[in-house]
Amino acid sequence: MSKNNLYNIGLSERFIQEAEMYDSNLHLARVSAQHKDMYRVITESGEIWAEISGKLSYSASVSADYPVVGDWVLVDRIDDNNGYAIIHHILTRKSCFERKAAGTGQERQKIAANIDTVFICMSLNNDFNVRRIERYLAIAWDSMAVPVIVLTKSDLCSDLPTKLKELESVAIGVDVVITTSMNGDGYTGIGKYLHKGKTIAFIGSSGVGKSTLINKLLGEQVLVTKEIRGDDKGRHTTTHRQLLVLSDGGGVVIDTPGMREIQIAGADLSRSFADIEELAEKCRFRDCKHESEPQCAVKKAIEDGTLSVKRFENYKKLQREMVFEVRKSTLSAAQAEKQKIVDMMGSLDAQKQVVKGNRKNKGKR
């Protein structure tokens, strides 16, 4: 691959200018896969193995400080004929899709970096879930990439108009593309998003057809695929994130393992729930909680059927998750858990009154 062809996989002037701030003997490369402590990177000479430098490893305090698929990095060589390349620097990410890492800690897990478009894939069978789409949209907007909803397996759906109607109220300002693997032109709708230098990340539950779709774009069976189970649930096939180059200057795609339940690390609710945010502006009180306050525009919209109760409940749920994540980032784990209990049971003063009352009643017995 010539240096000019690095532009085909996303290289831009902003990365070149940043790279010039470092040692001129280092070379630009893009991370295409990660295997434990080893990485595959694409240089101007092709795809090679690399590992991070001791200095970079020492300065990394959390997993998010390490390279992720899609990162532009600086390496000490463009081939691995004389040993693995060494990654010395990670260039500033223009976008990053992330989620809260598994467990109860505060760490965030970077899924992919420097993405232009996020394909939120959902199959039109039993996997279809508008509440999950709302969650994905909130995280996708927060990543600084543009989300597109890709509905797969339309051949398995007998009520497509109904499902599209459900999406209308949640996919505000978001393109929706319908695909099927049953005929050769079932993927033509996504062609307009494939361009030289552009990066598309595929996310969604296991078995929704991400790998099948990517294989179709690649023109060959590169990724392993499996049929859905008898209970209409998807089978997990992708085990790690990887960046794949499309032919004919079509940019690159990033495949990710299935994520059925995704915990929020950051979310843009103002974009994904723009309808509720706009209604809230019309409430009588600026700090309206949309519960028992008079002249609440949100409550009125629910009453007259223009706003779904389930959509509003999901909005509140994501709000609570966001608040809790912010608190955890500023408080210790013990303090955050204590605050969570306070929120659930009322103010501390109210709790003290309950304790005081219990002691008083106990003394009268």
Rank of each mutant, 00 (worst) to 15 (best):
R320N: 07
C288N: 04
K100M: 12
F128A: 06
N5V: 03
N25L: 14
R108C: 09
T152N: 09
L151M: 10
T330F: 11
S57M: 14
K300I: 05
V130P: 11
A301F: 00
N8Q: 15
G207V: 01
E107D: 14
I228K: 12
D248V: 03
V31K: 05
S59Y: 15
S206H: 05
S32R: 13
L246Y: 00
D116T: 04
K289R: 15
A85L: 05
I200A: 05
I48T: 03
G184S: 15
G105K: 03
Y22M: 09
E291D: 11
K55F: 10
A33L: 08
V69M: 00
C296I: 01
D80M: 07
R14T: 13
C283Y: 03
T43Q: 06
E281H: 10
A336W: 01
S329Y: 08
C288R: 00
S63L: 11
G207L: 06
I139C: 01
I262G: 02
G219T: 02
K340A: 15
S329L: 10
D65Q: 06
S2Q: 15
G219V: 07
A60L: 09
M344I: 12
K362I: 10
D37V: 11
A334T: 12
E18L: 03
L331W: 09
Q351H: 12
Y136L: 06
L28Y: 04
I48L: 07
N215M: 05
L213Q: 02
G70W: 04
I200R: 02
D232F: 11
K216Q: 13
K282T: 08
D127A: 14
G46Y: 09
Y84P: 05
R359F: 14
T92L: 08
T117R: 01
S32G: 12
E325Q: 14
T179K: 03
S158F: 10
R235N: 14
M344S: 12
Q295Y: 10
F202N: 05
S57P: 06
E47A: 12
I139T: 02
S247E: 08
K316C: 08
V150Y: 05
E303N: 13
A274F: 04
K340V: 00
K210I: 04
V174C: 09
V69W: 01
D76N: 14
L156N: 06
N129G: 03
I48K: 04
I78F: 11
L156E: 11
V354M: 14
A64K: 15
E303P: 01
Y187L: 08
L269C: 02
E261M: 03
T212W: 00
L194W: 04
T117H: 11
E107R: 09
D159F: 07
R365M: 12
G173D: 12
A301K: 00
K192S: 14
A334Y: 07
V174G: 04
Q263D: 14
A101I: 02
R241A: 15
H290M: 03
V148N: 01
N183Q: 13
S329K: 08
S347D: 05
D175N: 08
T225S: 06
T212G: 05
V62C: 14
A33M: 13
A85G: 03
I341W: 11
C96I: 07
V130G: 03
V150N: 03
G70V: 04
G186V: 10
K360P: 02
I262N: 08
T43V: 06
